[in-house]
Simulated scan of single mutants.
Amino acid sequence: MTLTARDLMETDVETVAPDDEVSEVLGRLARVDFNGFPVVDDDGRVVGIVTQHDLVHLFQTEDRVLWIPIGLPPFTETLTYAVDVSWDDLDLGVDLARHAGRPISDVMTADVVTVAPETDLDTILDLLADDERDINRLPVIDSEDRRSSGSRSQTDDDGTLVGIVARQDVLRAVRDERKAKR
């Protein structure tokens, strides 16, 4: 039996909306064990994906990564990405305030690679191991048009989010399959 996205996916998917603020999403990321959220519209359609990398990029100064305060002053929570920020970058507070209220739709990746529930394990492995893109999580969408069981980029005509396949899910499945063959 060939494993499919339906066999691997987590169906309880945490998502964000396109109009959620950057500061809110940063706070949510600080409290979860994964590194990104699918962005879904009011109809449950995937319109983007936002990752820690997308958000940290907003607050980088040149090639440095920094501590990112969450919420409003006094900052009681932080995301710890690195510590190399010089005192010459005192405008960071202004930069943080400027970006905190931006909608996620401004920073999300709109060209999302998704899979159908019927997508096979080999296709999923190819997507997660792609050298061009750094994909950690694949949203699984149930499209009204099921002609293709492979991957695709998200369009407005595609269906709703039904699950997500993370790299860890695939690794566990491969491990379990290998153990079962012993």
Rank of each mutant, 00 (worst) to 15 (best):
G150E: 00
R152F: 11
D126K: 06
D89I: 14
I135N: 07
A82M: 09
D131V: 14
Q52A: 15
A166C: 07
Q52D: 11
D158T: 08
T78L: 02
A166T: 13
L29Y: 01
D122P: 02
M108Q: 04
V174E: 12
N35M: 12
M1T: 13
V113I: 14
G27H: 04
K179G: 14
V83N: 06
E132S: 03
I68N: 00
S86Q: 09
T80L: 12
D91E: 15
S153E: 03
R178P: 03
S105M: 01
R31Y: 00
R152C: 09
V94M: 13
R137D: 07
V13Y: 04
D169G: 10
D145T: 10
D157T: 11
D134R: 02
A97H: 10
V22N: 04
R147N: 09
D54I: 00
R137F: 10
A97C: 07
D122I: 02
P117S: 01
N136Q: 07
Y81A: 10
V32F: 01
T78A: 02
S148G: 03
L128P: 04
S153I: 01
G150M: 07
G48R: 04
V22D: 06
E118P: 12
R147D: 13
D95T: 15
I104S: 05
S105N: 10
V115G: 06
T15N: 10
L127K: 00
V50M: 08
R152G: 15
V107L: 02
T11W: 11
V65H: 13
L3G: 09
R98T: 09
P73Q: 13
V107Q: 03
A173E: 08
D134T: 10
T4W: 09
R98P: 08
V40Q: 05
N136G: 04
G101Q: 03
T123V: 11
T119G: 08
R172L: 07
T51I: 08
T61Q: 09
V46G: 05
D84Y: 12
R152V: 05
L125M: 15
T51A: 10
M9F: 09
P38E: 03
P38Q: 03
Q154W: 05
L58H: 07
E177T: 14
Y81K: 01
D126T: 07
L3K: 06
Q154M: 00
F75N: 05
V113Q: 05
T160F: 09
L90S: 12
A166S: 13
V50E: 10
R178A: 15
E21H: 08
D88V: 14
D84Q: 13
V40P: 00
D156Q: 06
F75K: 13
L55K: 05
G48L: 02
D54N: 09
P38K: 03
G36N: 07
D130I: 06
N35T: 10
